[in-house]
Amino acid sequence: MKFRLSSSYGVMEEVRNGPHTGVDLAVPEGTTLRSIIDGVVTNVFDGSGNIGEGVKILGEDKREYIYGHMSDVDVKVGDKVHFGDVLGESGNTGNSTAPHLHFGVKEDGEFVDPSVLAPKLDSITGDIGIDKSVPWYDIEGRVDLAMESAKENMKEEFKEMIYDFLRAVRDVVIELADIIALLGGGIFIILGAWKLKNANRWVSIIFVSRILIKVLLGGYIG
């Protein structure tokens, strides 16, 4: 992770009246903060409360995502946001002892442990863009790699198509070589049989021709 996890979910600390309701990332003031979810902004905190300036987003998954202690908010209530959209900048507002981002998640009105989302949050925080090397987790901890998996599957399917094509070409070349060798050998035998006299000549030619036709047609002549 780019930023240190300075406070975990549920810890008891002197600066709070109860267990910590989220996680804190020690990000410098002015760091770009981005939305971790597609959703709608339902609240913009004005800085008068403990959480300072901040944003609450109602995600499409029906959970609420809370960003606190911001120094600047670039969205307003009612704005639709998508994953990666800029929300504003981190700060040191409200009940805060140092610049950091407070991040919390509510489900059915109750705070839940957002720790599993810390790598994903960390990867989209800051000015260097999204770090695609970090696995992105949802709130249950399931890895969301659908797009990457699809790309890999496409690559594997393309490679398999190439292999199948090359194998087919190889088989055709081998079959052509066998057919050419068979025809050449048969013609050579027929020409040799032509030197025989009378009935022996035609018996030999018919016999060899019959064998050639049978082989070329896949043995369908009895």
Rank of each mutant, 00 (worst) to 15 (best):
R201S: 08
I162E: 11
K151W: 09
I124L: 11
S123G: 06
M70L: 09
P135H: 11
K76C: 10
H69G: 07
K214H: 15
G39H: 03
D144Y: 14
S204L: 10
L166N: 14
I206W: 05
E148L: 13
D138K: 09
T93K: 01
E152S: 09
H102A: 02
L145H: 14
L117H: 05
G39C: 05
I190M: 06
R16P: 04
W136Y: 14
I180D: 07
I189S: 08
M154E: 12
A118N: 10
S149P: 08
N200R: 15
P19G: 05
D24T: 09
N153Y: 14
K80T: 12
V15K: 15
Y67T: 05
E148Q: 13
V215M: 10
S7A: 15
V11E: 14
T31M: 05
A181W: 03
I179T: 08
N17M: 15
D171L: 14
I190S: 01
D24E: 13
L176W: 11
G88I: 04
G39Y: 02
S6L: 11
G141F: 01
I211T: 07
G39Q: 04
I205R: 04
S71P: 01
T97F: 13
I66H: 05
S48Q: 06
G18P: 03
V143D: 11
M12Y: 15
I130S: 04
K62C: 08
A168V: 11
G49W: 12
I37G: 05
G88E: 03
I139F: 09
I187M: 10
V208C: 02
F165D: 14
D85M: 11
M1W: 08
G94N: 07
N95K: 13
I211C: 00
E13Y: 04
V11P: 05
L212G: 00
P114T: 00
L176S: 13
F165L: 15
V215T: 15
D46K: 06
E60C: 05
S149H: 14
V81Q: 06
D61I: 13
W136F: 15
